[in-house]
């Protein structure tokens, strides 16, 4: 088996185009996870026991079961109840939920590291719970959390190939389709590997830089 450069040149545009879909899937999934994760984190701090226990257990469940199975579950279960989800929607829900569970732990760490006195001060000046979170706690907790959230963006990016199992047209799916059509898997899968390696190394470096900058700004060291 030898590497065919002409074939490489032929399929490269299609794969790079699919890379955009992969990046979009990662970005969208991360946005959903970032919002939902905050909801999970705050839900676990309410005084209403049944809610905190349920959310706690849900987070544990999402974190300890395979994402690929969750993707199948979301995609195939909808139609049984009359809700047909497109592969994109199902995939984004599954990835968003899965990573929301991870991010909620990061937020939790951030919220817990806000000094207790801040909460007491809020009570003392009669702020409502919503005001306390929005005006006092979150502005202090979020920057702390952001410093630990970058790695999950790369993790989501590396998990997007799993979306190919339900037919989302991302990079892995494009490579498999090309391989099937031409009976050549060497070039497509190798290119996918290289694209992943380049993007993750590059984003890992920029995220490290960004997090160091945030930490310095916050005076964390």
């Amino acid at each position: 088996m030898h590497w065919d450069w002409q074939f490489t040149a032929e399929i490269l545009p299609r794969l790079l185009w699919a890379t955009l879909n992969t990046l979009m899937a990662a970005g969208l999934g991360y946005a959903i996870a970032a919002v939902l994760g905050l909801v999970f984190a705050i839900a676990q701090r309410t005084p209403f026991r049944p809610l905190t226990v349920t959310v706690r257990e849900l987070v544990e469940f999402l974190r300890s079961t395979p994402l690929v199975l969750q993707i199948f579950f979301v995609y195939y279960v909808g139609p049984e109840y009359g809700v047909s989800l497109s592969p994109w929607v199902a995939g984004m829900i599954a990835i968003g939920l899965h990573y929301a569970a991870y991010l909620s732990e990061v937020y939790r760490g951030g919220i817990e590291s806000v000094p207790k006195g801040q909460w007491e001060a809020c009570t003392a000046i009669n702020l409502t719970t919503a005001q306390t979170y929005r005006r006092i706690i979150l502005p202090q907790a979020l920057p702390l959390s952001v410093a630990g959230m970058g790695n999950y963006l790369i993790s989501i990016f590396k998990d997007t190939p799993m979306l190919s199992v339900i037919g989302v047209a991302e990079l892995m799916q494009a490579a498999t389709a090309i391989g099937g059509q031409n009976y050549r898997y060497l070039e497509p899968y190798t290119i996918v590997g290289v694209v992943f390696l380049v993007i993750s190394l590059f984003s890992a470096a920029s995220i490290r830089g960004f997090e160091a900058w945030i930490r310095r700004k916050l005076g964390m060291y």
């Binding site: 799993m162 590997g193 992943f196």
Partner: peptide, 17 residues
């Protein structure tokens, strides 16, 4: 840096070549 699924498929589909 590369995704596990990519590594798995590479080992499975490309190594036999």
């Amino acid at each position: 840096g590369t995704s596990l699924l990519v590594q798995l498929f590479w080992l499975f589909f490309v190594l036999p070549l």
